[in-house]
Structures are given as C-alpha cells and as structure tokens.
Design a protein around this nucleic acid. Structure first.
Length: 282
DNA sequence: AGCCAGGGCCGCG
DNA sequence: CGCGGCCATGGC
C-alpha cells in the first residue's frame, strides 16, 4: 500500500531527524522506519510525502504519523509568539509529533539520558537485533522491538555489552517490573499529565526530562515541554531566562504555551540543534 | 585529548 | 528542599 500526502506539514526528514524517534535508516529517497514489530518506507519528494507499508498496517501508521491533525493551525499559533518560536516553527513545520508505542518510548528515552543521538540509535539497534523477533519488509530481515519478557530474562552483562553503561540496571529493572506487573503502562494512559508525570518519575532511571519525552512522544500529551541541554540553551539565549532548575524551566514554558508546548518545543529543539541531518551518519 | 551528549541518582548540608 | 559529584560510553 502506498499513500501520498502534501509535504508542507509532513516532511520525512524533519519528522524523523528531530530527535523523537531512533529506529530508522536512510533508504533510497527517504527512510525505512520501525515501530514495535512494524515497518514502513517514507520519503518526501518536492511537494509530496509518500508512505508505504503493509496493507494491514495502514491505520497504524496513519495514527503513528498523527495524520488526522491539521498542523497548519499549530504553526499559525506559533507565529503569534514571534521570535524564535515563530522562526523555529517555520523551519520545522514539516515535523509531525509521532504517536509512538508507550513502552518502546519509555525504554528508548531511558537509553537517551546523557547520551547523543547517533549512539542512542546504535544502542537501540543492538538491543533489537539481539532480542527482537525477526520480521521482513521489502524482502529484508529486520528485528522488532523486544518484549519486556525477553529483556527481563537477560543477564545484566548483556545490557552492558550493548553499550548501555550505567543505564543498564535501569533497563533491566524496568523490564522486570513490567513483567511482574509492578509497572503497568496501560493503566497510565488515562491519567492527566500531572499525575502521569508523577507516576513516571517514580520509575528507576526516569527523571523529569525523560518523563516529559515519554508523555509527549508516547502518550501524545502535548502539555509537556522536555528540557534537555539544547532546550536549556534556547531558554538562556533566546528567552533570556535565568532559572537553573530544568523542571521549573519546563513548567514556565507549559504555562506560556499550554497544549501547544510539545509542538513548539520540538520545533525549537530541531531548530537549535541546527541543520544536522543524521542520515549521513547511518 | 578533552568536551559533550534529548540526565538521573544519591549523599550531603 | 537544593546542590554537586558521579556515573559509562563513544561521537565529534
């Protein structure tokens, strides 16, 4: 199945290389992208973006790419704030905030802490190749994201061996807690953002910033504003802020931007990191 | 070679 | 509470 969309507010490169997802690689005119055990081929050519996947996965990826939402309205609202908010939204207007699987997002952003994006991609790829079920797309073998059950069975040395470093115990404990039922991600999906965050930060290895990423990219609650080193730069350089506590910085932005916080944050993160197209590294 | 990366934990005051 | 040291690893 192949579908075609206008590329103005749905650009493949912008959406994948803005740091919200790590399982993709450059392929032909665009990217092969994986989510859970599924795969798709997405590419932008001029004014059009094309999406190819198995017929059974069509609805999954339309929701995944948030295709029912009108992003022109979001960019329009960003314009009203002027400054970097406006500039960044125009720069990154091809970004869609993905509806990713919550469990995969949680594991992925624990990996992301104090780490750089190429290495995050590499570690997650090793994790999937080692433990994920084999699938096939475009006649090529790939691996699904591993289940918590399989991860929970692994010795801690396995997690060190794929380069997780001090994050290894975080990943192992989360897998074990999911299997035992101590952590129930499905129960979290009904919680309002404040409660959701309180629940997430109780997890070992999950702090304010990782929680905000999971809230935004996994649960698609857009009243979250993840503040990492790059967003701290934005705060200081472009908003002349003087707070130090990233949690308080995030709160200030959410008060300012409300339900648009997550979108605007992603525009600014992408803009501030510059024109890095991570595809050259793959 | 040395700083940095989509930070968080833990002990201390 | 708020702060600072520390944590593995490799990209650049």
């Amino acid at each position: 199945m192949q579908k075609c969309y206008s590329s103005e507010f749905f650009n493949a490169t912008d959406t994948l290389s803005c740091g919200q997802v790590f399982r993709f690689y450059a392929y032909k005119e665009g990217f092969i992208l994986f989510s859970l055990d599924k795969a798709c081929y997405v590419y932008t050519k001029g004014t059009e973006t094309f999406l190819q996947c198995n017929d059974d996965d069509e609805q999954y990826f339309e929701r995944y790419f948030d295709l029912d939402r009108d992003y022109s309205l979001i960019v329009k609202r960003a314009k009203k704030f002027g400054g970097i908010t406006e500039i960044a939204s125009n720069f990154g207007k091809g970004i869609r905030i993905l509806n990713q699987d919550t469990e995969e997002t949680l594991f992925s952003f624990i990996v992301s802490q104090n780490n750089n994006i190429p290495r995050i991609k590499s570690i997650i790829e090793k994790l999937c190749n080692a433990l994920g079920e084999e699938r096939e797309f475009f006649s090529e073998i790939y691996h699904a994201f591993p289940t918590a059950e399989i991860m929970a069975e692994q010795d801690i040395d396995f997690f060190y061996s794929i380069g997780l470093g001090y994050r290894a115990p975080y990943i192992k404990k989360l897998a074990q807690d999911i299997v035992s039922g101590t952590v129930d991600i499905n129960k979290m999906s009904n919680l309002p953002t404040i409660q959701l965050k309180k629940t997430l930060v109780q997890l070992y290895g999950v702090g304010s910033k990782v929680a905000d990423c999971v809230i935004l990219f996994g649960f698609h609650h857009t009243d979250a504003f993840p503040v990492d080193t790059w967003m701290e730069k934005v705060y200081k350089e472009d908003f002349n802020g003087n707070l130090v506590d990233r949690e308080k910085i995030a709160q200030g932005f959410v008060e300012k931007f409300g339900e648009d916080s997550g979108y605007f944050q992603q525009y600014m993160f992408y803009y501030k990191r510059g024109f890095k197209r991570l595809t050259v590294l793959i």
